[in-house]
Simulated assay, not measured.
Amino acid sequence: MMAKSLVVAKFEFVKTVRRKGFILGTIGLPLLMLFVIGLTLYTGAGIGTGATNQTTGYVDAAGFIQAAPGFVPYPDIAAGKAALVKGEIDSLLVVPGGYIRTGTLMVYTMDSSLLGSAGSSQSVQEFVTRNLLRHENVSDETAQKILSPVSPTVIVLDEAGNPKGDQKLAGFVLPFALTMVLALGILTSSGYLMQGIGEEKESRRGEFLLSHCSAEELLAGKILGYAGVGLLQITVWVAIGLIVIAASPFAALFSEIQVTGLVCLAVVYFVLGYFLFSVSIACTASLAPTVREAQQVSAVFSMFAVFPIIFLQFLLQDPNSLLMQVLTYFPYTAPFVAMVRLTLVTVPPYEIIVSIAILVISIAILTKLAARIFRMGMLTYGKRVTFREVFRFLKEK
């Protein structure tokens, strides 16, 4: 049985990784995201170098502004506007005479983009704040602390009120990132799985394959094959991410990553979650008469993968709420919600044990029924199978 499953797995793996869509999604998608992020950081005013390279003119009617690099004084608004139109400055700041009382400022700019306006506002706010602090005789050292306060040291306490010790940022980020990677892996691999099953059913190759191997062997081979596809894709994404992190200022945060119990739980949820979704999607895709309908039906399972994003606000506000506990026990949301909760609060061990047990039981039950449903779906051509027919088929068998 295992030999035939491995043959099917190898065929599905090689067929998928050779597709242009897989290569583009695996390598092109992360590179495109990095390009967009880098372009935003570089050109986004106030974020990268865009704001520091701008020249701002100012008209000081309040009488407390002092010149600074990148800021040019003008005697009146007319002169400042003329310089702005000629392109000598990028924006014009007007400080009214009653600014100390009203706090009202005005900025003229030729840049109508959102980033340009935001960048001008941010640089102007910092410039005016420094001058206000100087006007109130605040020292430059104190002004710098006000404008750029030092991040506080966060000490996490256990239930007894004792410090848990040094909490590395990577210890919290890594499981959360693994949860997001699991979600992306499920969404992409399920798409390939649905497409492969749908193509075989429409071309009736599924009937030919079932004449040479059992439904259990065919289903196991497909799940293993697409598991390899998903693992390869995730490995490439993680490798690209690690390269980017190593070349960034955040490398020090991940320099002392240790394999903790939290990371081990993330791996357990990753494996169980993948097999649960793979078996579910394989069954639903085999019952659909076309690839399009298979995508529509399987989208229900894919929605569970983005639950942490949908409920992110509730997770952050109250991770131990009744809703979050229920979602931790529900098998299709447990891999995602449980891992996010574990990164935020101390989840009682019994909740984790019950959650994993429900996942294992669900996979065992679904796997037992999956081969029958898969065989029925692959042999049903050009017909939409109803739930009543599925139940009747399972009962007869």
Rank of each mutant, 00 (worst) to 15 (best):
L359W: 01
T260L: 13
M376L: 13
A357C: 10
S112I: 01
A68F: 06
V297E: 06
V229Y: 00
G38K: 04
V360T: 04
L287I: 00
T188L: 03
L93R: 02
M194A: 04
S362Q: 07
Q313P: 05
P289G: 15
G161F: 11
Y42H: 13
G63Y: 14
T328W: 05
Y226W: 15
G225M: 07
L92N: 03
R392P: 00
Q66E: 10
D318Q: 13
T386R: 06
G221Q: 03
V244D: 00
M180R: 01
G57C: 08
A338P: 02
T260Q: 08
A364W: 06
V306S: 06
F250T: 06
L219Y: 09
Y42K: 08
L178K: 01
A299H: 04
I23W: 05
R18S: 11
Q295A: 04
A220H: 00
S5V: 09
I310L: 15
G228M: 11
A294C: 08
L31E: 05
L6V: 14
I146F: 09
V306W: 02
V347S: 03
G261F: 08
I146D: 11
V59Q: 02
Y381G: 03
A371K: 07
I257R: 08
H212G: 15
I373H: 01
M110T: 12
C213E: 10
T290A: 14
Y274P: 00
L287G: 00
D166H: 08
A160K: 09
A357M: 14
G44E: 07
G241D: 02
Y274A: 10
I352L: 13
V340R: 00
E216G: 09
P152M: 05
L41E: 09
L315R: 01
V173G: 01
F127W: 11
K368P: 03
I243Q: 07
L147Y: 05
D60N: 07
L262W: 01
F22K: 01
G191C: 12
A334F: 03
Y350R: 05
F71Y: 13
L174T: 02
T179F: 11
G221C: 04
V17A: 12
L31N: 11
T380W: 01
S211L: 08
V94M: 09
I352V: 15
V238P: 00
R388I: 03
E126S: 11
A83E: 13
S121Q: 15
M33P: 05
A294N: 02
E256W: 01
A334I: 04
I100T: 07
